[in-house]
């Protein structure tokens, strides 16, 4: 993969990731944000968050199964866009939906399970976004950084639960996203097992054994 192609692909990825924003802008300008624009914005940004979380989680298995290592260079981009949309999603709730009614916030964050899990998913993504720079990776060390960024699994699972609990009757969409997430997590288990089988079982060095 040449640098030129990577740049071109990045431009395409940016545009694809911004599609929900373009859609909202277009619908806003054409007065087509449905009868309930705030609900539509909330749903659109929430769904974009979930989709981008799943795309981000798909990159590592896709890379390992296909051997296309350059895929990894898109993971930060999609991950940060997932964070971008969850910020929009939360801001829509706080600013447009309940319009900074702090009492309502306190009620929602203590009494409404689907809002609580959604909020936790959002909180857990903040440190991931903050430590997304190359500088942070160097500073933290790859091991710690990787460990911290395992939080994305928790956020994704909570995101699915949040969606599931919010729905009134038709669970098709959260079930679909949930299934995709399950497949992506199972793929990791498969990759882990595969790598264990390839590697010879770890033994203490011969010299150490001899010294016993």
């Amino acid at each position: 993969m040449t640098q030129k192609k990577i740049v071109a692909l990045k431009v395409i990825t940016w545009l694809a990731c911004l599609e929900p924003v373009f859609l909202l802008l277009y619908k806003y300008l054409t007065h087509d944000l449905t009868a309930n624009p705030i609900e539509f914005i909330t749903d659109t940004t929430g769904e974009a968050t979930l989709v981008l979380l799943l795309v981000t989680l798909a990159i590592t298995p896709a890379r390992k199964f296909t051997g296309l290592n350059w895929l990894i260079r898109f993971r930060r981009l999609t991950g940060l866009f997932a964070f971008f949309y969850i910020v929009l999603h939360f801001s829509t709730y706080l600013g447009l939906d309940i319009q900074f009614d702090w009492h309502q916030v306190s009620v929602d964050l203590t009494k409404r399970p689907f809002i609580i899990v959604g909020f936790i998913a959002f909180l857990l993504m903040i440190p991931l976004a903050v430590t997304s720079t190359s500088w942070a990776i160097r500073k933290m060390g790859g091991r710690n950084w990787n460990l911290l960024h395992k939080l994305i699994y928790v956020s994704a699972v909570l995101g699915i639960i949040h969606f599931w609990w919010k729905v009134k009757a038709d669970h098709t969409e959260p079930a679909t996203y949930g299934t995709i997430l399950a497949i992506l997590l199972l793929a990791r288990v498969g990759l882990w097992v595969k790598s264990r089988m390839k590697r010879p079982p770890t033994r203490k060095p011969q010299a150490a054994l001899a010294g016993d």
């Binding site: 009868a35 309930n36 705030i38 609900e39 309940i98 319009q99 309502q104 009620v107 929602d108 409404r112 399970p113 689907f114 609990w165 919010k166």
Partner: peptide, 16 residues
């Protein structure tokens, strides 16, 4: 059980 019924959004209005 999952949300408040104290307020509502009138379709076409911004504030609840």
């Amino acid at each position: 059980p999952r949300w408040s019924q104290a307020t509502e959004r009138r379709i076409g209005e911004f504030r609840r």
